[in-house]
C-alpha cells in the first residue's frame, strides 16, 4: 500500500488529496499519534475530570435545587397551613364576634325589656300607691270632717241636762 501511495505521489499533482511526498503521511501520522497520545493520556483525563466535575456540580446543583424546591414547597405548605389557620382563626374570630354581637343584642333587648317591665310595674305600683294614698287621704279628710261635724253637733247638743246624763251614765257604768 505504501508503494501504491509512492506511485500516486510520483504522478504529481493529480487533483486528488494525495501528498506528493509519502513521508508527509508518515510524519503526519506520527504527529497525529503523538498528539493523540498526549491527548489520550493528558487531555482526556482532564476533560473527563472536568466533565465529571461539571456533572457532579450539576448533580449537586440539581440536588440543591431539589432541596431548595422541597424547602420552598415546605415553606409554601407551611405558609398555606398558616394561612389556613389564619383564615380559620379569622373566621372563628368573626364568628365569635357575630355571636357576641348577637348575645349583646339579645342582652340589650332583654335589659331594655326588663327596664320597660320594671318601669311599667313601678308605674303601676305608683298608680296603686297614689290611689291608695288618695283614698286614705280622702278617708282621713272625710273622717276628720265627719268627726269634726259630730263633735260640733255633740258640743252644741250637750247642754247641762246632756252633761248630767253622761255623768250619771258614767257613774252607773262603774257600778255595773
Amino acid at each position: 500500500m505504501f508503494a501504491f501511495a509512492n506511485l500516486l505521489a510520483a504522478e504529481g499533482p493529480n487533483g486528488r488529496f494525495i501528498p506528493s511526498d509519502p513521508w508527509e503521511l508518515f510524519w503526519a501520522a506520527l504527529a497525529f499519534l503523538v498528539i493523540f497520545f498526549f491527548f489520550v493520556t493528558k487531555g482526556l483525563p482532564l476533560i473527563k475530570e472536568a466533565l465529571n466535575k461539571a456533572q457532579s456540580d450539576a448533580v449537586a446543583e440539581a440536588s440543591a435545587a431539589d432541596q431548595a424546591m422541597a424547602d420552598a414547597k415546605a415553606k409554601i405548605a407551611a405558609a398555606s397551613a398558616e394561612l389556613g389557620d389564619a383564615n380559620a382563626q379569622s373566621e372563628q374570630i368573626v364568628a365569635e364576634a357575630r355571636e357576641a354581637a348577637q348575645q349583646l343584642r339579645v342582652d340589650s333587648a332583654n335589659r331594655t325589656q326588663q327596664l320597660v317591665n320594671d318601669m311599667w310595674a313601678k308605674a303601676q305600683n305608683d298608680v296603686v300607691g297614689m290611689k291608695t294614698q288618695a283614698s286614705a287621704d280622702m278617708q282621713a279628710e272625710v273622717a276628720a270632717q265627719a268627726v269634726g261635724a259630730a263633735e260640733e253637733v255633740v258640743k252644741s247638743s250637750l247642754d247641762s241636762s246632756g252633761q248630767n246624763d253622761l255623768i250619771e251614765s258614767y257613774i252607773s257604768g262603774l257600778r255595773n
Binding site: 248630767n164 255623768i167 250619771e168 258614767y170 257613774i171 252607773s172 262603774l174 257600778r175
Partner: peptide, 13 residues
C-alpha cells in the same frame, strides 16, 4: 251628790 255617788261607785269598783 254626784261626787259622793261617784266616790261610792269607784270604791265598789
Amino acid at each position: 251628790d254626784q261626787r259622793n255617788r261617784l266616790a261610792d261607785a269607784l270604791r265598789a269598783k
